[in-house]
Amino acid sequence: MSGNKRIMKEFADIQKDPPPGCIIKLLNEEDMNVWDVVMDGPADSPYTGGKFTVQVTLPKEYPFKPPVLSFRTKVYHPNVTNDERGAMCLGMLKADEWKPPNKIAEVLRLVRAVLAAPQPDDAVESGIAEQFKNDNKSYEKVAKEWTAKYAK
């Protein structure tokens, strides 16, 4: 299948021109399907200054099936599950919205945009979403604390 060749090509392209604030490596040199991304917390957000590790797993059907995202760094965010999976499932990452021409670079840009601007109405952590909407100050406070504590 065309998958592997495409992954190599995408990896080469993303090394040449990485999305802003992202450093992308392979988790393990033999496996093209697990990418290790270190993402700077976007400026003007409570995550600024933090370094977030996001693991991008490309299923064997990639690019026919969407990549799976997993925050390895704990992050206080309405759209990231607060568990060991640290899953994010938004927009193009949803199985029925994924289209093969989408690329990892676009996915990472989306992730960073969502970090900067949470989408509380599409939240997976409803408690954080409520706080984000109704008590933004304390949301920012906790998010900053977590960033300082976990995302060093």
Binding site: P120, D121, D122, A123, V124, S126, A129, E130, K133
Partner: peptide, 11 residues
């Protein structure tokens, strides 16, 4: 479909 989680976030 665009904001399905609102339902669970409404006190």
């Amino acid at each position: 479909g665009d904001s399905p989680y609102q339902h669970f976030n409404k006190a």
